[in-house]
Amino acid sequence: MVADRQATQRVLLVEDDPADAQLYQTMLQQLQADSLEAMTAPSVAVEHVETLEAALSTLHDDADGIDVVLLDLNLADSVAFSTLEAVLEVEANVAVVVLTGIDDGSLGLEAVERGAQDFLVKDHVTPRVLTRTVTYAIERKRRTLELERQRRELAVLNWLVRHEIRDDAAVVLGWIDELEPAGPTEERIVSRIAGAGDHIVELTESVGAMVQALEEPEPALESIHLETVLDEEITRLEERHDGISVDRESDHEASTVVCADRFLNVVVRNVLTNAVVHDDTDAPELSVRVRTVERSRDDLEKPSDERRADGEDDTVCLEIADTGPGIPATERRRVIEPNESGRQGGTGLGLYLVRTFVERYGGHLEIEANQPRGTVVRILLESAA
């Protein structure tokens, strides 16, 4: 169990030295008698056992009632990390603070790596240090459990989006291909249904990529050929949207291999799709430029009008300009935030997803006005050359 911040903290003290055990119980309850600390310090209830067997029995019978285990690793019936492993095997959801008589930081760090929330060297324990360590360990475990719960929920969401919803959309699109419209009105209806189905498929890919990003806080980057990604996504765009014109230009003398991952396709697709679906003209025109610029990593954090000096590292710049209605300067920062719809409605996911992945790649996203009309989205990525 993980205690509420205002509730009583139930501590299971596992210590085979009676003198040490009495000392820790006194320390934990000492602040309760201090009028200055009692206003903020939670009340503490301590249950003391001397062996691992007794500790495991207590956890087995009343795991939900214990908030933190103060655990001496060396007991009469167990020694070293096997003691910690046995406790965590019986109850993985309880916070554990390891007590060690050895003033060795590496031992304490290894205990944390094996699943403990913290460690204390017995000779350095004071009432305030002990109380705060217990409180922080409980809170740290609570947050860890919450993150694990969220990850499980994200995994379920990922499955539903990437499989169930996507499969149903594929069925709809498959049946649409079998339809033979009798006239212009029917053709228009079928076209709109097909467009909505395609959009559902694209959204499942975007949501799936976002869930994957949240599940993998440290991305494994690799060398990705940006030109290959552009070939695939521009072809996809032209197949799904009629009447668009894409003017493409690349710096063929420079390498356009960038540091990214398999979701770079989703990033480029979102920018290209946004440029088309938000265009209010009958024939959207896109300008796609890829070039290499020299900018340092620190230089990427400066405002665009200050990033003109030569940098240290080659950076690949992907620039996608459209001729749509544009984004007012006051909204350019908002449209890359979650839950912001941006121009002409929408889910607000696209550019936020783009920013999320670009920053995961160590890059930078810029949004500027196009001239005489439209928007320029500029993605700066580290070169892998």
Rank of each mutant, 00 (worst) to 15 (best):
R295W: 10
L56I: 00
A213M: 01
V46Q: 02
T100M: 08
D4M: 14
C259V: 08
L272T: 01
E37H: 07
R142D: 06
H199W: 05
A182D: 06
L230Y: 01
V79L: 11
D261V: 03
L272F: 09
L203P: 04
N274M: 05
E37I: 07
E178V: 15
R343L: 14
E232V: 15
D310K: 15
R5K: 12
V125T: 04
R262D: 15
K302A: 09
L157H: 12
P338T: 08
M27D: 02
A209F: 01
F119Y: 01
G348H: 03
T273G: 05
V190C: 10
V11P: 13
V290A: 03
A384C: 12
R240L: 15
L154K: 02
D103K: 04
A19P: 07
L130P: 05
R308Y: 11
A137W: 03
G108W: 03
V79H: 12
M27G: 00
V156I: 10
V121I: 15
R166H: 13
V268I: 12
I189S: 10
L130Q: 06
E253P: 05
S223M: 07
H163R: 15
L381Q: 03
A137Y: 00
L353H: 12
G346R: 03
L12G: 14
R333C: 08
S250P: 13
G345T: 05
I244A: 01
S255L: 08
V288R: 11
L23E: 04
A38I: 09
C259T: 13
D103T: 05
L179N: 05
E216M: 00
L12D: 13
H60S: 13
A309H: 14
T356R: 15
P219A: 08
R140S: 12
N370T: 10
T26S: 14
L272W: 06
L31P: 03
E239L: 11
R10N: 15
L221N: 07
G326E: 03
A260M: 04
G65V: 00
L237W: 02
E218Y: 06
Q30G: 00
L237D: 04
T135I: 14
N74M: 07
E312G: 09
Y361F: 11
L56A: 02
R236D: 07
N93F: 06
E47N: 10
V290K: 05
